[in-house]
């Protein structure tokens, strides 16, 4: 199979996945238990996306001094809960990460 064919097929499959529910909306009625779960999707999906970045170092759980991303992430969580400001959260998270790198 040529590279062009593989790329086109990969593009189509990715697009089809992203379009799936958007295209079905209105034509098909999702089951009753499913709709109340939609507000939880951002929390479930984005937390699952971030957690391994913060908690794992080379595939192993690491919550000590060897994992500055965990501590910087914790500080970012506290700042986000306290202020809810995105730029402040990013700034404090980076400041914490770089300071911890210097200190450890």
């Amino acid at each position: 199979m040529s590279l062009a064919m593989v790329m086109l097929a990969c593009g189509l499959i990715t697009f089809a996945i992203r379009l799936s529910f958007i295209a079905m909306e209105g034509r098909y009625r999702p089951p009753g238990w499913f709709v109340p779960l939609l507000p939880f999707v951002p929390i479930a999906a984005l937390t699952a996306l971030v957690a391994p970045d913060l908690l794992l170092v080379k595939g192993h759980l690491s919550l000590g001094a060897g994992n500055p991303r965990f501590w910087a992430g914790l500080i970012a969580i506290v700042v986000a809960a306290w202020r809810g400001n995105i730029l402040l959260t990013i700034g404090c998270g980076f400041a914490a990460l770089w300071l911890l790198r210097l200190a450890v």
Binding site: I43, A44, A45, D53, L54, R69, A80, A81, I90, G93
Partner: peptide, 27 residues
């Protein structure tokens, strides 16, 4: 690291009750 930090800034304000916190912890 900007990506996890931005996602944190987006998700944390959504955690307004125990149910949502429990969902985040399990995820």
């Amino acid at each position: 690291f900007a990506l996890p930090l931005t996602f944190i800034a987006i998700v944390v304000p959504l955690l307004v009750d125990r149910r949502r916190i429990a969902v985040a912890v399990l995820a």
